[in-house]
Amino acid sequence: MKNTILSLSLLFCLNFSFAQQVEGITVEQFFERLDGIKAQKNNDSLYVINFWATWCGPCVAELPYFLELQENYKDQKVKLLLVSLDFDKDWGKKVIPFVEKSDIKSDVWVLTNYLRNMEWIDRVSPEWGGSIPATLIVQPQKGIHAFQETTFEYEELEKWVLSFK
């Protein structure tokens, strides 16, 4: 009985931690959060927001560089946010196992209703054609909003990110 309770609570904790980290959100919620971050005029963190999906080969290939960057600059207020465009039916099945396997510690937001509303692509950046991988950089204090629709090698990514520090 004790064991059951223990394993149940352990299971609950595990679920809870993943539920915290991988989260399905709507496009509207995404912009609420993004606008919320941008409104913090005293916040000098640099947010690196990568749009990716488990089905996107180049995205998966460059993901380790983003994790490495996060690890190397975690003390210098560089914050990685991963926004997944996995299909909503897949996010429990594919995204969570992928996040566990890849040892991703950043928040992962899975956009659940992005397919029908194409205006959100322009809202992220008018430069964005809609293909992934794509990366957005936001620094609220300096009002920075920079965007690139491209794949990165580590050095290129680091150089681009540091250009905003």
């Binding site: 996107c56 080969g57 180049p58 465009l85 992005y114 397919l115 194409m118 692509i121 322009d122 964005w128 054609g129 809609g130 293909s131 992934i132 991988p133 629709e149 491209t150 794949t151």
Partner: peptide, 10 residues
């Protein structure tokens, strides 16, 4: 013209 999510050309 419209936009849509897609796979970047390699």
């Amino acid at each position: 013209s419209t936009k849509a999510v897609g796979c970047s050309i390699k």
